[in-house]
Computed example of a mutant assay.
Amino acid sequence: MNSYTKFSHTTGRLVASGDAKIYVEEIGISDGPVLLMLHGGFGTIEDFNTIAPTLSRHFRLIGIDSRGHGRSNLGSTKLSYKTMTDDLNAVINALDLRAFSIFGFSDGGVVAYRYAAASDPKLQRLVTVGASWEMNEKEPCWEMISGMTGEAWKEMFPASYDTYMRLNPKPDFDVFSKSVVAMWTDLSADGHPEGTMRDIAADMLVIRGDNDFLTNLESMARLKAMNNKVNFMNVPFAEHVAFDESPEIVLRAMGKFLGVELK
């Protein structure tokens, strides 16, 4: 076992994906089962550090900074869920991973859904938190996400902005924030997986905070009805980042789903 139990942006490497460089960092048991960690929009792998110490005792955790986030640069390709799924493929191939599960939060969960819908037999199980699978202008969160600006994000989440400026190799928050919002509101085939969720054959644990303003219960009920591989959990009192707000509940469910006792 290595000595690292949290993501720190100090021990990783860069993986090429097109003209972008994607930052990848590993912690936990070097020969343990692989769990890929995909964070949310405007975030980084350090967002997982509430639960990483527990997970690192059982898994080889591989954290990936999404394109344009953390230490990964944006590149010239349009930021989209499809592009980030291509980046995930590049990392999996570069690390020569033969079997793995994925933990995806929010945007990272959308990428995980898209990857799973391609039916890679190397993917064993999938856990998502706060991850929508469909999007349209009637979704309750549409007004908020479509109206988001870089200035508004800085005012609402100053620590997130400071982290971006500290880690990004060539920071340009205005360009970056516009790219993220454009990805959120992309209703093309490059966006949310929508009906391809029926194609996912891997077992899924889909977690939502009961007070999550970015996902809604009706949508998750439709997903469970669509694919019998979905195990759905609604976490009481939690909002969007349920694994931060109720880590004991989320870890216990993850442990049961992944076949380990997480404590």
Rank of each mutant, 00 (worst) to 15 (best):
V241T: 15
K178Y: 02
R71W: 01
T11L: 11
D19G: 06
R208M: 07
D120L: 07
G70V: 07
S56W: 01
M165Q: 11
P236H: 12
E239A: 14
H9R: 10
D107C: 00
G255L: 04
K256C: 07
G18V: 09
A201Y: 03
G150Q: 08
D31F: 15
L251M: 12
N2K: 11
A131C: 11
S119Y: 01
K224D: 05
G28P: 01
V111I: 15
V91Y: 01
D190L: 02
A52S: 13
D244S: 06
H69Q: 05
K170W: 01
D174T: 13
T83A: 09
L74E: 01
Q124L: 12
E239Y: 10
G255K: 11
V260H: 10
D47G: 14
V250C: 15
A94S: 14
S246T: 09
N234T: 12
F232E: 05
S8T: 14
L187W: 02
K224L: 08
E194D: 13
R13E: 14
S219R: 10
L14C: 06
G40D: 09
M144D: 15
A116E: 04
H39K: 15
L88M: 09
P53W: 08
V181I: 13
D96W: 03
D86P: 00
M37N: 04
L223E: 05
W133P: 00
A116G: 03
G75N: 11
M37Q: 06
C141F: 10
F59C: 06
N168M: 03
E218K: 14
F243R: 08
M183V: 07
N234V: 12
I102Y: 03
S132P: 09
G104C: 06
